[in-house]
Amino acid sequence: MDLIRDLLGEEKLNYLGYSYGTWLGAWYASLFPERVGRMVLDSYIDFSRPLDIIAPQIPARQRALDEILIPYAVRHARHFQLGTSEAAVRTHMANLSPRMQHTIAVPLLLTAYKRDGADQFLEVIAIARELDQLFTTMPKPLDRATAEKAAQRLPFIRRDAERKAGRQVIAQRLLASYFETLPHPRREGLDMDFNASTYAAIRCNDAPASTDLTAWEKQLQDAAERAPHFFFGLYNNTCATWVRPDLKQPDPTPLQSLDLMLVQSQYDVATPVEGANAFFARLPRAFRVYVPGELERGLFPYRDRNCVDLTVTRYLLGEPPAQRETVCSALPLEQDARK
């Protein structure tokens, strides 16, 4: 990063980083504080502590489910068909078969990062419930081709013509995942594609990990009890056996002298608010834009014009806000906006 700055002929680095990019920005600023210009860290990680990505996300995902997504499903019970009370929604989720719980784990993870993913998150659950019910009526062993044909007639898919195509795509993806893992519910080895292996290498190289497998198993069990739909993130304890390079995280003290701009939403599941609040408190000269009630990850540009975007843009142009923290109103979820 400093080589890029030098090649551009710039005395200072102006930087906008999101999520893990905030870790990179903080690392750079800790090493070269005198070369930092305007630096925005959006959806940021607490750089004052060793990197721990997965464990804090599990309770954060459960909190977003409890306080944002389930109430949203109840407010629009007719649209999502998951029940008219929070208890009913929780019952539908808890009653999914173990195999279906496993099948929807990754789709729920991938749709929980954005405000516009809230509808798909709930539709995954509704379709999974109907697929489970469908499978109970079909002869065993299950036949994939027959199941895919029958799934096209599921009531939830056919109920809304406008959303039918999208729901069919979700159903087909769930079916593919369901039947892919059905013959091999347990694997002795660990296979990683390009993205997963890169992610593991970065995460395991950046910070030391505990090699106490007993403690890890206890953490996994505790997470399963507290967040039964999200504890799967701890399945692959790759870093416990990683041969890490001799690398030391720089002292974050120099960050205290910088007028960084931090941006954070309350219900971000990837960079939870607890770490964000702790890091902000340790940086007396930093500014922050905070959006309570929001689960969006990577807020800027937020397209709200007069708060998040205005404050961050002015900062990037050399006009820091007068106050240390700017609190902005959250934009509505899709069905709330249609009222």
Rank of each mutant, 00 (worst) to 15 (best):
M1I: 09
D2E: 13
G9D: 10
E11A: 15
E11C: 00
K12A: 12
L13I: 11
N14H: 10
Y15E: 03
G17R: 05
Y18A: 11
Y20Q: 03
W23H: 14
W23G: 02
A26C: 10
A26E: 09
W27E: 13
S30K: 07
L31T: 01
E34M: 00
R35L: 06
G37A: 05
R38F: 06
M39C: 07
Y44T: 02
Y44P: 03
D46E: 13
D46H: 04
D52H: 09
I53H: 08
I53W: 03
Q57H: 01
I70D: 00
P71H: 06
A73L: 05
R78M: 08
F80M: 02
T84R: 07
S85K: 12
M100E: 05
M100Y: 00
Q101I: 00
H102M: 02
A105R: 10
A105S: 09
P107E: 02
L109P: 00
R115A: 12
R115C: 11
G117R: 04
G117W: 01
F121T: 12
I125S: 04
I127M: 01
E130D: 00
D132V: 06
D132S: 02
F135V: 02
P139I: 07
P141H: 03
L142I: 01
D143V: 15
R144N: 08
E148V: 07
R153T: 01
R159I: 08
E162Q: 10
E162I: 02
E162M: 05
V169R: 07
V169Q: 05
A176M: 12
A176T: 14
F179P: 14
T181Q: 15
L182M: 15
L182P: 08
E188W: 09
G189A: 13
M192K: 00
M192A: 03
D193L: 01
N195E: 09
A196K: 08
T198C: 01
A200V: 10
A201H: 08
A201V: 12
R203F: 14
A207L: 07
A209S: 15
S210G: 14
A215L: 10
A215K: 07
K218I: 15
Q219H: 06
Q221P: 02
A224P: 07
P228D: 09
H229E: 13
F232P: 08
L234Y: 14
L234D: 14
L234G: 11
Y235E: 14
Y235H: 13
N236L: 11
N237W: 09
N237G: 11
T241G: 09
V243S: 13
D246Y: 05
P252M: 14
T253R: 08
P254W: 13
Q256N: 12
L258P: 09
M261T: 14
A270F: 05
P272A: 15
N277I: 15
A278S: 14
F280V: 07
R282S: 05
R282N: 01
F287I: 07
V291T: 10
P292F: 06
G293W: 06
R297A: 10
Y302Q: 03
R303N: 10
D304H: 05
N306S: 08
D309S: 04
T313C: 01
R314A: 10
R314T: 02
Y315T: 03
L317N: 12
E319N: 11
E319G: 02
R324C: 13
E325F: 00
T326P: 08
C328S: 01
D336S: 00
K339H: 15
